[in-house]
Nucleic acid binder design. Structure first.
Lengths: 373, 373
DNA sequence: GTGAAAGCGCTAACAG
DNA sequence: CTGTTAGCGCTTTCAC
């Protein structure tokens, strides 16, 4: 399988695949998968009894039960989830719609969801929802419409009214993480309170010249997160008797975004603030890198605090608000499964729940350890 | 919905959910979902005809086809994927087994896979495979055994012989990314060649005192990645007439791992190398952060190059090998679907394919742009 | 406690 | 080109 260094990998790929496929004879275990009828026959019971024994639903004598179970084991029987779903209507699968996969917060949520789900015997189908586009519509009209899940977790997706409507019509349980959806339970931090707390933390360290760097007020990522965090900042500043005017800057909600803004803002020593409240941990990290590049010592010359804790943040000595997104994911699954158990579909829930996750303000050097439980 | 600040969020949650569920009457669109029989009746054709018209398989006159389609549209019909799968044996779903979700490389692969899959009408079920544990076994024995997918993509998972056997017995198409699996096509970079190229790049810049920082030779993440990259490094050094002995250090394959090792190695100016080849981009970033913290200028005083490109790397001015993990994901999907189309299951593939993806060495300041296509 | 029978919603022969 | 007939593999009444 020599690879030709003069062709692109796509070209190489196309050639390779074509020539590589070799039919082999059916390997061990070959032939059709065994069905419950086989199990029943082997255990000398009816299919119905075998089903009851294996699923645990309905009365079966302990003796026949064990006979059925061992029969199933010997022939390596596994239920056909499709057949079971067809009759029960349950899939043992949960759909997750999420705007990003790679960003820290979302990846953490995903891991939490996945762990909680697996433990409960569910698996997880991911739908990475792009911004408004035909692809996005297709996810709603086709993939979601197939309803191959018992419930949906919507992670920080900003849904149009039509999309919310779609979701409800799926007649499936539905919970949200990170942003309220009309008529649906949602797990979210209180953005205003969190931003306020972060700002107050900086104020308590004696800072007066504080800048907030967050997302665009026009392009809200979702649910007015940006403006709510800005509002929390302004409130804290005003309450402390400082004017927040002119101390807010917009940037991209990413590491490069924070980096770029950091170079801009921190470049001029006269305009440089003593502390920055960043709307996200990624922005904060970008800021810190920029600060270091400019020779500014963090945190002695500049305090930075960001929302959305992440393990990596620690190594940057980043004072951070830790909200454990992974736990948010687990919480969502717990809620969802509760609804599933009580057979309450999405439309059965009248109110949104705002859950403020526990916050911990950590800092490495200059600030006291402060926790809010 | 007042939240009691004196209880943990878990406690609050438990109370909240119990009191919150309110049954509402069935909302709009209520009642059972429409079936293909409804469509057939409305269009005055047989179910089979409706099926043919909707699925596009088999002959239907253009006239009846449009009648069926519009009938389906008016009653908002969507096929039951379970019922269809039960008879066709196809699920239009692909399983992905992957050791991490949050790490850059894996998240990037996931995004590539997801995009390619959605475009092809498939959705993606993720199984985050932990290290050897009962949970891991359960994924194989239960979740994967259910076979609710047409194929599996294994991303850099180090499989035991038993697990490989399991996978093959699923009788589903199977491709690997990032590490060879016996009897399965795999997409991977050539670790030796890549490491060698990276080292040669540093040599070509005139460096002589080069250190390689990579993963533990005992705990290989998978597929001897660590030792292969080390071997590539040693080969390049020896070929250039330099001894590589004593210039390899092991660290955790993460940002903090690189950071810690950076502090150790770069702390002593006498022992400090002029260039470092890092086995991963995360290590490289950790190194750079450590270097900056020690006041070392990158890249003028220290060149760093890492394997596994990532967008974030650019902002760290990291000279990087870009292998576009997203494209690796897309490639894998293309391969998988090709096999699916040709109805060739995993066991029909005799050889592994090593695909060296195109490499681009980028650098911001001191090095020439160099590409290998 | 267990068995027989009736589908779940769909597609794939096979006739016409 | 279209309709009729059988199931896919399972769970679930309903008798016994």
């Amino acid at each position: 399988m020599a690879t030709d260094a003069n062709s692109t990998c796509w070209n190489r790929f196309q050639n390779d695949v074509k020539t590589d496929i070799v039919m082999l004879t059916e390997s061990k275990g070959g032939g059709a998968m065994s069905t419950i009828a086989d199990v029943a026959r082997l255990a000398s019971v009816a299919k119905a009894t075998a089903s009851r024994a294996l699923s645990g639903r309905g009365y079966v004598s302990e003796e026949t039960r064990s006979r059925v179970v061992s029969a199933a084991r010997t022939i390596g029987y596994v239920v056909s989830p499709n057949a079971a779903s067809l009759v029960t209507g349950r899939t043992k699968n949960i759909g997750v719609i999420i705007p990003f996969i790679g960003r820290w917060f979302f990846a953490e949520v995903l891991e939490g969801v996945e762990q909680a789900l697996l433990a409960a015997g569910y698996d997880m189908t991911i739908y990475n929802l792009p911004a408004a586009s035909p692809e996005r519509d297709r996810i709603f009209d086709y993939f979601l419409a197939r309803r191959r899940f018992d419930g949906v977790i919507a992670v920080s997706v900003d849904l149009s009214n039509l999309e919310v409507e779609h979701l409800h019509q799926l007649q499936r349980s539905l919970v949200g993480i990170g942003g309220a959806i009309p008529g649906v339970h949602t797990i979210a931090i209180d953005d205003v309170a969190t931003a306020r707390l972060a700002t107050e933390h900086l104020l308590s360290l004696g800072h007066r010249d504080i800048v907030h760097i967050g997302g665009s007020q026009e392009e809200q990522m979702d649910f007015n997160v940006h403006s709510q965090r800005l509002f929390g900042f302004r409130t804290a500043m005003l309450t402390a008797g400082h004017s927040p005017d002119g101390s807010f800057y917009e940037c991209d909600f990413t590491v490069p975004g924070g980096y770029e803004m950091g170079l801009n803002i921190l470049g001029d020593p006269r305009r440089r603030p003593t502390a920055i409240f960043a709307a996200s941990d990624e922005i904060a990290i970008g800021l810190i890198v920029a600060a270091r590049e400019l020779g500014i010592l963090v945190p002695s010359e500049l305090s930075v605090i960001g929302i959305d804790g992440h393990p990596h943040a620690e190594m940057f000595r980043l004072t951070t608000l830790e909200q454990n997104p992974r736990n948010q994911g687990r919480l969502a699954v717990t809620m969802l499964l509760t609804d599933l158990d009580s057979a309450a579909p999405a439309t059965a829930m009248a109110q949104s729940t705002m859950i403020t996750t526990d916050l911990v303000i950590r800092s490495s050097t200059s600030a006291p350890r402060l926790s809010l439980t």
